[in-house]
Nucleic acid binder design. Structure first.
Lengths: 195, 195
DNA sequence: TGCATTTGTCAACAGGTGTTGGCATATGCA
DNA sequence: TGCATATGCCAACACCTGTTGACAAATGCA
């Protein structure tokens, strides 16, 4: 069934098609979410037969799981507590608009609204990536609350800018975002109440 | 077809069933979003035949439109600029958790992620309700930007607390939310940069 | 060259969708 | 009481969905 893999690697033709399918899926899932995209849509976008999508990825769920991989690349080492707000918002902009990073996060956010499986994945990203980073500064007992507030601002910004595409939020420059949202994240992450 | 309506009103039996259908639709749309709920689901929840749903509301789209009505009841009269952050966050909590207000906003937010029609409605709510309220204080030329920032925080809070149900955000008490988010909204709405 | 494996297409399945029209019942006015 | 109307159920439609298995073409090693 699979090629007899003695020597580790070999780029077969199927690897390329598999990659094409995955890329098509990522693009479509990012625009329509899990429910809004059919396997036939993905197949058409990849110029291939729908049956191949199932052959390479065994089900729509598995294809989605492969497409919705997220790594926020947050610095887990001790960050300068005085700069954490700035660090977070800059990292956010790179993750959502940078060229390298895939659209994993927008796929997840789009789908999470009406798909419990995707919602669970978002909660995983929060628990395993955002929360530890916020916990690395300040009181660990308080980390959940602070990370939750951070997430509320960042996911809201993402929702308005990339999901709903609210005109005034889309129009914000990176500098404006950093200048306005950075301090809010700083306050949330450090746990200092309003002053 | 319709009852010959000379004298204005009369509560017929059909009015009650229509209301039952609408209530069932609201409940289900709030949990599953537009795509996640079928007309058969609504019919079952209302203990009625699916055909009746179409007879009363002419299509799924129209049923959804009736279910997703939103009135934030923001004070459009000139609000005390020094209290606008507090006013906004308290109004937010009433709208999302108060007993009277329907689940219109959560229906919209859930569906907007993968349904362009619903997304457009959210943008309408922003443009016609949130923006004017923020514009009523401060420089009108700047209102869009400020209202956009306000929306990013409020929709993010709603996303985390009611949509994704992130544990630490769900656990926040009303007082904590008011104390933490209020000042942020205050700063966003008045347009004062970080200090 | 042959031949086994890989890569791909086609047709079909079982089930769910929004929507429609026909027909039975219940209601309420004369 | 009769009868028109309002209310409701049933069956079916055309279509889309994820998924499967059988069969054809291409590939690459001997």
């Amino acid at each position: 069934m699979f090629m007899t893999e003695n020597h580790p690697k070999k780029i077969t033709k199927s690897d390329r098609t598999r990659a094409q399918i995955l890329e098509a899926a990522r693009r479509l899932f990012a625009e329509g979410g899990y429910d809004g995209v059919s396997i036939r849509d993905v197949a058409a976008q990849a110029s291939i037969d729908p049956a191949m999508v199932i052959r390479y990825f065994h089900s729509k769920d598995e294809l989605f799981a492969r497409a919705a991989v997220v790594d926020l690349k947050l610095p887990d080492q001790r960050t300068d507590p005085a700069m954490i707000g700035d660090t977070l918002i800059r990292r956010f902009l790179v993750n959502w608009e940078g060229p390298a990073n895939g659209p994993g996060m927008i796929i997840l956010l789009r789908s999470a609204a009406s798909n419990e499986h995707a919602a669970e994945k978002v909660r995983d990203v929060f628990a395993n990536q955002v929360r530890p980073m916020v916990a690395s500064i300040g009181d660990p007992a308080d980390a959940g609350r602070r990370a939750g507030l951070v997430a509320s601002q960042l996911l809201g910004l993402a929702t308005c800018r990339y999901l709903l595409r609210l005109a005034p939020v889309v129009a914000l420059s990176h500098e404006e975002i950093i200048r306005n949202v950075g301090p809010v994240l700083q306050r949330y992450a450090t746990g200092h109440d309003a002053g």
